[in-house]
Amino acid sequence: TRVETATETAWISLVTALHLVLGLSAVLGLLLLRWQFPAHYRRLRHALW
């Protein structure tokens, strides 16, 4: 049971790290898009909202 718990903890930390990385890359990508294509971003936002 001790090994299982350790594996579970490792998986949880791995998944958390993955989610953090994905979230950060998504935010960075959005910022980059907004910085590179302001007109396109505004049009996209206008279409979405």
Results as ranks from 00 to 15, higher is better:
L14K: 00
T5K: 00
T1M: 15
L31W: 14
S25W: 06
Y41G: 06
A26K: 04
A17R: 01
L33A: 12
P38I: 10
A17N: 01
V3N: 05
V3H: 01
L14M: 11
G29R: 01
H46R: 07
L22F: 06
I12H: 09
L31E: 03
L22Q: 01
Y41Q: 02
L32Y: 04
T1H: 14
L30Q: 01
V3W: 01
E8K: 05
W35R: 15
L44N: 00
L33N: 00
I12S: 10
H40A: 11
L28G: 00
G23P: 02
G29P: 05
L20T: 10
A26M: 15
T16M: 07
L33I: 08
R45T: 09
I12N: 06
L48A: 07
G23D: 03
L44G: 03
A39F: 10
G29N: 03
L44P: 03
L24Q: 12
W35V: 15
E4I: 11
S25A: 12
S25N: 08
R34L: 06
L14I: 13
R34K: 15
L44F: 12
R34I: 07
R45D: 03
L28V: 02
R45I: 08
W35Q: 15
S25Q: 08
R45P: 02
L32M: 15
H19T: 03
R45A: 07
E8Y: 05
G29F: 13
W11T: 07
W35C: 13
I12T: 14
L14P: 04
R34T: 07
G23E: 05
R2D: 13
L22E: 03
R2K: 12
A47Q: 06
R34S: 07
R45Q: 06
A10V: 14
T16N: 04
S25H: 02
A6K: 07
R42A: 11
T9Y: 13
E8V: 05
S13F: 14
G29I: 10
V3Y: 04
T7Q: 11
Y41P: 02
R43T: 10
V3K: 01
L44Q: 01
R45N: 00
R43M: 07
G29M: 13
V21E: 02
L28Q: 02
L33M: 11
R43C: 08
W49F: 06
R43P: 05
L33S: 02
W11Q: 07
H46A: 07
R2E: 12
A39Y: 13
R2G: 10
A10K: 12
W35F: 15
L24S: 07
V15Q: 10
L18F: 13
A10M: 10
Y41V: 14
A39W: 08
L30Y: 08
R45K: 15
T5H: 00
H19A: 03
L24P: 05
A10Y: 07
A39V: 14
E8T: 08
L14A: 04
A17T: 13
L18D: 02
H40L: 07
E4A: 14
I12V: 11
